[in-house]
């Protein structure tokens, strides 16, 4: 019998599959590395849940045009905001559609998962995910051209996030040019 009683209805304040997947990949990598480098690694260090007291959220699917003030206005409905870090294009330093919101308490972050994740901001459904905490450098997009990875290869047009994915747009522009030059 499972010891902890699961609720009869799912909870919305759980970390996403994305986070859990990354965590288990990371753990696996750590393990591989540790096996090679350090056999005396303590197992407890790994089993500690990095989200146990998390007061930070990753917020995704924002429009590039959504301002800090708008984010503040919505997210403050779950509690006072300690810090708000906008996600920026690595090269242009312009907003690229995500941010980190840090509350003062873990409970506020959980409430935000339950009550705000999946609702609209600036007329887009936004995504929230519990996050172990902001670190310098994480505010920048990790995509090839400076934005988020998802905006590289997106093949549907999203006016709030710079149109087509950049790689796709590039491809199309190239085709255009080649067509124009008579190929």
């Amino acid at each position: 019998m499972p010891t902890a009683t699961r609720s009869t209805v799912d909870r919305l304040d759980q970390p996403s599959a994305y986070f859990l997947g990354r965590q288990s990949r990371k753990r696996k990598n750590d393990r591989d590395r540790d096996d090679r480098e350090d056999k005396e690694r303590t197992p407890e260090a790994v089993s500690e849940d990095p989200l146990k007291d998390a007061a930070t959220l990753y917020v995704g699917n924002l429009s590039f045009y959504t301002t800090e003030e708008q984010i503040h206005e919505l997210f403050a409905k779950c509690g006072e905001i300690k810090r708000l870090v906008m996600g920026l294009d690595r090269y242009n330093k312009t907003p690229c559609g995500f941010c980190f919101v840090e509350y003062y308490t873990h409970q506020d972050a959980l409430d935000c998962m339950k009550y705000i994740g999946g609702t609209k901001l600036d007329e887009r459904i936004i995504r929230t995910d519990l996050d172990p905490g902001f670190q310098e450098g994480r505010q920048y997009g990790r995509g090839k051209s400076g934005g988020q990875v998802r905006d590289e290869y997106r093949d549907e047009y999203d006016p709030g996030r710079g149109g087509f994915g950049r790689a796709v747009a590039e491809e199309r522009a190239k085709e255009e040019r080649e067509y124009g030059s008579g190929k």
């Binding site: 499972p2 009683t5 699961r6 609720s7 009869t8 209805v9 799912d10 759980q14 996403s16 599959a17 859990l20």
Partner: peptide, 24 residues
């Protein structure tokens, strides 16, 4: 609303060690 559970299914199965859990 339960459709969204599909995503978590793998994890839940693993944790409870079997198909018997609070899932609907």
């Amino acid at each position: 609303y339960n459709n969204r559970k599909r995503r978590y299914r793998g994890e839940l199965r693993k944790e409870t060690g079997g198909p018997i859990s609070g899932l609907i």
